[in-house]
Design a protein around this nucleic acid. Structure first.
Ligand SMILES: [Mn+2]
Ligand SMILES: [Mn+2]
Ligand SMILES: [Zn+2]
Ligand SMILES: [Zn+2]
Lengths: 159, 159
DNA sequence: GGGGTTAGCGAAAATGATTTTCAATAGCTG
DNA sequence: CAGCTATTGAAAATCATTTTCGCTAACCCC
């Protein structure tokens, strides 16, 4: 009577995703749309783990299996839509990649986990130079600097 | 009758390690010495995973518990003796860090796992600049470029 | 628009690297 | 050497991620 909200209607975001998926033999599913929408919907909430994505979707009433979340993330990383990040120790984080978000890197506080982003053309220059020098096909590069943030520096000294 | 081969005798490597460990309240143990010796012993075999370390030690007759290997790795990373690397998807790799091995970075083939090392002063310059700009205490930085090596590029086309 | 083909989904079980538990042992300090 | 406690080994526990499998829904073609 009202559909799933994703059936054919003219949705630019969906058309874009369908185009990219179908080109590689993948299918456009409502689950994949919802996950991608989560990233593009809230620019402040990038750096999401699979579990966080699952939880946020659940909070907004979208029940998607956690295994589907993992599968969708892998597909999108392979398609170059998302980037996988190794910020914390245990889980992996994902963020929007490509034309939307410029290439950038991360400064992580190993104490509280705070993440700061930065850009520097030198990083791109170096990764280009090295991939060419060794004859590699460049996929992506990740530059992560670990340290202790100003706030945590105070909370660490003396007993 | 012959000791464990590590008791007090004048071993420069051991003295160095003991110094660093004791300074932080840690103890010099034969297990820690053996693990560190594995890295400094064979410069060709850096980039070792916990399991590989455990196996190599077993091969040379040193039975060390896998949990001890993990614990020793963490201690040494915190002391700045080793660096933890995220090269492959699943496990973590470790390599000697500090005065012995210059700061360097990695180019990884996502297809066969081949790892190439390279250096570039610009990377260090950027990480210094960013940590200072944000008031962080710099611990370490990791720059990893992912791509497909020349060899694998041939094996990927057509059915 | 419907039918056949097959990618993708959910739920639950499996996997596997890493961590924790706990009693026994071994560094270190005085 | 004695006492204190960090460290170890072995086994169990964690827990993020993956796999299995029967079922559903995209996509392609007429
Ligand atoms: Mn980011
Ligand atoms: Mn290296
Ligand atoms: Zn912090
Ligand atoms: Zn390769």
């Amino acid at each position: 009577m009202e559909g799933n909200g994703f059936t054919d209607c003219a949705n630019p975001q969906a058309d874009f995703l369908k185009e990219i998926l179908n080109r590689e033999g993948f299918r456009l599913t409502s689950q994949r749309q919802k996950i991608l929408a989560l990233f593009s919907g809230d620019p402040l909430a990038h750096h999401l783990s699979a579990e966080e994505i699952h939880q946020r979707l659940a909070d907004q009433g979208e029940k998607i299996s956690i295994s589907t979340v993992y599968r969708a993330l892998h597909v999108m990383v392979n398609l170059g839509l998302l980037q996988e990040l190794e910020l914390a120790e245990d889980r992996k984080y994902y963020e929007l990649l490509g034309p939307i978000m410029d290439q950038h890197h991360h400064l992580v506080c190993v104490h509280c986990g705070e993440v700061t982003e930065f850009e520097d053309p030198r990083i791109t220059a170096v990764s280009d130079r090295e991939t060419q020098a060794w004859g590699f096909t460049r996929l992506n590069a990740q530059f992560t600097v670990y340290g202790i943030c100003p706030h945590c520096q105070g909370h660490l000294v003396a007993p």
